[in-house]
Amino acid sequence: MSEHFEVIGVSSPGKELDEVKSDEEIEVIAIDMSRQITPVKDIKSLWSTYKLLRKEKPQIVHTHTPKAGIVGMLAAKLAGVPHRLHTVAGLPLMEVTGMKREVLNFVEKLTYASATKVYPNSKGLYEYILQNNYTHKSKIKVIGNGSSNGIDTSYFSPDQITEAQKTLLKKELNIKEGHFVFVFIGRLVGDKGINELVKAFSLINKKENSQRQSKLLLVGPLEKELDPLHPDTLKEIENNPDIISVGFQKDVRPYFAISDALAFPSYREGFPNVVMQAGAMELPSIVSDINGCNEIIIENQNGVIVPVKNSEKLGEAMERMKSDTDYYQKLKMNARPMIESRYEQSVIWEALLSEYKKLIKEKDYRV
């Protein structure tokens, strides 16, 4: 987009924002935004964002994530920004009940009311937004086949990782020839299905009649604040020698490359990049039956879809994946072509660029 527009990136301060500045070669501005419900901090964020937008006078403000959405869209409306775009890439409120759910419902509706266009990044989210009356159908649209950014299949490719790299990493992690490796990539929190995943893996790995020993590779940060794992899960991760937890990794491709299948039993998603990345790296996926996941994965073609929060069905899918070689090879063979044909990044970028250009040409600026 920086080839067509002057782009300013706004997010909370930290090394990640500095990396965006360096990697994307754009101007960045730090405005602190809490991920939790913090009214005083949120008002400060809103005021800072409003002042920034009054100063810069952008034609387009495009927000991602719920907190950046409410802060950015409300500030943009107050500042008179003509095009206020919000991408919905998952809804945390799906797993919330009671008064907190009521508050989050109100915030979501206010975000969409402040926006001029809303882009759910999956067809499932599109339907969910309409079913819950968060906004009118005329305001929402799915870009392309879904996804916020698509996948660069030249970057996420098995060809990018050498045999020497794989051998070295396997040795480092004590993964031997013949091990079947399930990989999970993401935050290690409850609503990513980690409790169910660890339980399912531990059960199938204890079976005496297992034809092939398996490993579970967990790649991602352990977050204890917002949605901590069960104590039993943490204990199993720490004590089970077949569960390998490597923490956050900036480049996840080597970990895909030494794995055989993605296990991703999340409770809620928008359009998960990790499932597309796994497919591009020629890995079939076991995913839960939720928005996004059940669009990227087609049952028994490039993966398996299991019920949400069901460790038993998850375990059955994992067991078949590692023991039925013909079935596994069929899924593996389809994995990359099914990503290339539907979610190539350049196609998503062109669709978004076309959307921006179309909006800017419109003369009816509704503020």
Rank of each mutant, 00 (worst) to 15 (best):
D289F: 02
S138V: 03
I244H: 07
G279K: 11
V183C: 01
T63W: 12
L85H: 09
T38G: 03
F156D: 09
Q59F: 14
I70T: 08
N132P: 05
E340F: 03
S147A: 06
S288V: 03
M338N: 11
G270R: 09
E196K: 02
N209A: 11
S2G: 01
I296D: 11
E19P: 06
L78V: 11
E16P: 13
P337V: 08
Y126E: 14
L125M: 08
N291C: 06
K171D: 14
T233W: 04
P284A: 09
V308Y: 04
Q249N: 02
S122F: 07
E299F: 02
S34R: 12
P158R: 10
E25R: 15
I305M: 06
P284C: 07
N239D: 05
Y328W: 08
L125F: 02
I151P: 10
E299L: 08
K361M: 05
H230K: 15
M94T: 10
L168D: 12
M1I: 07
V347K: 14
L352I: 10
G150N: 10
R366W: 03
D326R: 15
S11P: 03
E223T: 11
G150A: 07
G144D: 10
V118G: 13
I297S: 08
F256C: 01
E362P: 00
G72I: 02
L229V: 07
E225T: 14
H4N: 13
N133L: 04
H4C: 03
E102T: 13
K109N: 02
V28D: 09
V308I: 13
E236V: 06
L203C: 00
E350T: 10
G98Y: 09
F271K: 04
L226E: 15
L130H: 06
L359D: 07
S154R: 14
K171P: 03
N239Q: 10
E24Q: 15
S354Q: 14
N145S: 13
V219S: 13
V308Q: 02
I298Q: 15
